[in-house]
Design a protein around this nucleic acid. Structure first.
Length: 615
RNA sequence: CGGGCAGUGGCGCAGGUUGGUAGCGCGCCUCGUUCGGGACGAGGAGGUCGUGGGUUCAAAUCCCGCCUGCCCGACCA
């Protein structure tokens, strides 16, 4: 089986000895010997023969897949869709999953997190206690059992952890960090982009328990650091940004955003200072506007004028920044007016956040007419008493403005907000635009499309109060536990890594999360010498804890190269008959595709070294 | 929830308007020749045409319902 040719360097014996030493283990079939475990962690990875590995790679991606990660994960045989928003993890995908999960686990454990595993079907009563049985609306899957009892499929687990926290009764037991990695269900209105937006997924959700706000701040900072470490280890360039807390409630939250065109969030970033915020929260500094000196409120006819733009252009009209835009919105069934400057856009999330509403939609033209007496295009808030009016800060103190008169084809001019409009609340409703001044340093801001890869919240006492989770302090006073909540989606992280690590040929996994760290490609399975050499290296790398696959398929070299590149294994060693006869193999990093010849004697050390650094 | 598009072997698609026993490429199996960047030849296997009903002598094709998937939209009064 081994080459018998003479070796001029005299070092062949060494090679042969290695072959004998490690090659023999392959015939023993003891699983334990084939699973030496990774030197860095606890995930045992089985070395693999490609000839026996289920990796259904495709030449063509499904025609309807658009996101790069979606196409590549399907083509590479990592995932398959079962139905909309539900994916099966194939062996390749699952290997990546386990590595990503293990990184998350290690970083959670490093901040003293304790791992749990909770049910994912919960009694409705628990969610009714916190009020989220209603708040979550259609996004929560609900299941009725044979007895007619209502259940929720967990979307997140504040309720269950807070319920368990009832057994924490003394300040001496705090702080605690509890977490799990488990399936979550969300009935997304529109699952899309492969693993990026799904209805069933795995989330690492963590919850901190503290005596007071200061403790929560510490726990929050620890998680912030842990998240930075996680994303760094999985190769994701995640940016922490100020975010809306949405349905979670609480006093503050930070999202970890990865710039990508496949994302669904817009993030405002300052190129000069640290300012970064989700567009749902972002603000900017506006230039001063000098009011036009129109002291008297006056109605004037505006036949056919229905838009801000048209009102700018007619005689007696006004530039957009001197108009009031009146948006008629329905908040939890209540018709509400949201007022903005004419040239500004309403951000719906801001309106939701400031109003505390659960559900929000624009009013129909009929509803607008019913409540204000005119159709859209001629609406305004002057003299409106019975409706809730929320106005954007940019209108504060303004006068000489133009707005609809609540009669079709009529507008007001000379409106003083303070004098003429009964504003109930002032709020930040305006969506910032690209190029406006950074609120911290006045540099023009940028807006970047991002994937939300993680989100951490300061919850406060809401859930502890709902569940009755309290502790006694040193003075014997009872306090609700102060909680934080910290989430990261495993599948989304995987997809995001692909979005940010691929080229025309396929994926380029960071070694830390690659399905295999190295692939040994046998160019010709008929060439006994190079096959033996490849087998020996396979055995040695396995023994030395490298997660390796050997491509021993009886296939053409081109097919093997293409598959290895598609699947994105970061390190490739090619055993070709000619080079091997010269005592050499080829080493090709996936990222650079620069092939270099390496002596068969040096390749194992070289790989072990490189891979250890990359991990 | 509104609008659009689409369901035909494992994947990608044609056929449909003009009803007449289902076809192409890739993949898969066998044999041979090949063998360092997705080989070639020959021979094969594999399809309730999403589903239920209707029209008809006859339906992938025409009609109605349903299911499923994909894309866009769901603030700019």
């Amino acid at each position: 089986m081994f080459p018998t040719r003479r070796n001029s360097t005299g070092s062949w014996n060494d090679w042969e000895r290695r072959t004998a030493l490690f090659g023999s283990r392959l015939t023993t079939s003891f699983a334990a010997e084939l699973r030496p475990g990774s030197p860095r962690g606890t995930v045992p990875f089985t070395p693999m023969r490609w000839s026996n590995f289920h990796t259904p790679t495709l030449r063509d991606a499904p025609a309807d897949a658009e996101a790069a990660s979606h196409r590549l994960l399907i083509r590479g045989g990592f995932i398959r869709q079962l139905h909309a928003g539900h994916y099966s993890m194939l062996p390749l995908g699952w290997r990546v999953f386990r590595k990503v999960a293990e990184i998350i686990r290690e970083e959670m454990d490093a901040i003293d997190g304790q791992e749990f595993q909770l049910p994912t079907m919960h009694p409705a009563s628990l969610w009714k206690k916190s009020g989220r049985w209603e708040v979550m609306g259609d996004e929560m899957f609900r299941v009725t059992d044979r007895k007619g009892a209502e259940n929720a499929l967990g979307m997140t687990e504040e309720e269950v952890f807070a319920h368990l926290a009832q057994e924490v009764t003394s300040y001496k037991a705090l702080p605690q960090i509890w977490y799990q990695m488990h399936t979550k269900f969300r009935d997304e209105p529109r699952p899309k982009s492969g693993l990026l937006r799904v209805r069933e997924f795995t989330m690492k959700d963590a919850y901190s328990l503290d005596l007071d706000q200061a403790g929560l701040d510490t726990a929050f900072d620890k998680h912030h650091a842990a998240y930075i470490a996680m994303f760094d280890r999985m190769g994701l360039p995640a940016v922490p940004v100020d975010a809306s807390s949405g349905a979670m409630g609480g006093s503050g939250s930070t999202e970890f955003m990865v710039p990508s065109p496949a994302g669904e969030d817009d993030v405002v970033i300052c190129s000069n200072c640290d300012y970064a915020a989700n567009i749902e929260r972002a603000t900017s500094t506006l230039p001063e506007v000098t009011d036009r000196g129109i002291p008297e409120l006056e109605r004037f006819p505006t036949p056919g004028v229905r838009t801000i733009k048209a009102l700018e252009e007619i005689d007696g009209g006004a530039p957009a920044e001197h108009q009031i835009k009146t948006m008629v919105m329905v908040l939890d069934g209540q018709v509400t007016l949201a007022l903005l400057r004419g040239d500004h856009q309403l951000n719906l999330q801001k309106l939701l956040d400031t109003s505390g509403a659960i559900d929000l939609r624009p009013a129909t033209p009929e509803e607008a007419h019913e409540n204000l007496g005119a159709m859209p295009g001629s609406l305004g808030a002057v003299g409106v008493e019975e409706l809730r009016i929320i106005a954007d800060h940019s209108l504060l103190g303004r006068s000489g403005l133009t707005t609809g008169a609540n009669e079709d084809d009529w507008h007001y001019t000379g409106v003083s907000v303070e004098r003429d409009i009964a504003v109930d609340e002032w709020a930040d409703l305006r969506e910032v635009s690209i190029g406006e001044a950074c609120p911290m340093c006045s540099t023009p801001i940028e807006i970047v499309r991002c994937i939300e890869a993680g989100h951490i919240f300061k919850l406060g006492t809401k859930y502890a109060e709902a569940m009755g989770a309290t502790v006694l302090d040193p003075e014997g006073t009872q306090h609700p536990i102060v909680m934080g909540s910290y989430g990261i989606g495993v599948e989304r992280a995987i997809a995001t890594i692909v979005e940010t690590h691929h080229d025309d040929a396929g994926m380029i996994w960071p070694t830390s999360v690659a399905p295999f760290e190295a692939v040994i490609t046998i160019v010709s399975v008929k060439d006994e010498a190079s096959v033996a050499g490849a087998e020996a290296l396979y055995a040695e790398l396995t023994q030395r804890g490298v997660d390796v696959i050997i491509d021993d398929r009886d296939a053409r070299a081109g097919v093997k190269f293409a598959d290895a590149e598609l699947i994105g294994i970061p390190h490739r060693v090619t055993f070709g008959p000619k080079a091997f006869a010269d005592g050499e193999v080829e080493y090709t990093p996936r990222a650079t595709a620069e092939t270099e010849r390496v002596s068969i004697l040096a390749i194992a050390d070289r790989l072990v070294e490189t891979i250890s650094v990359d991990r």
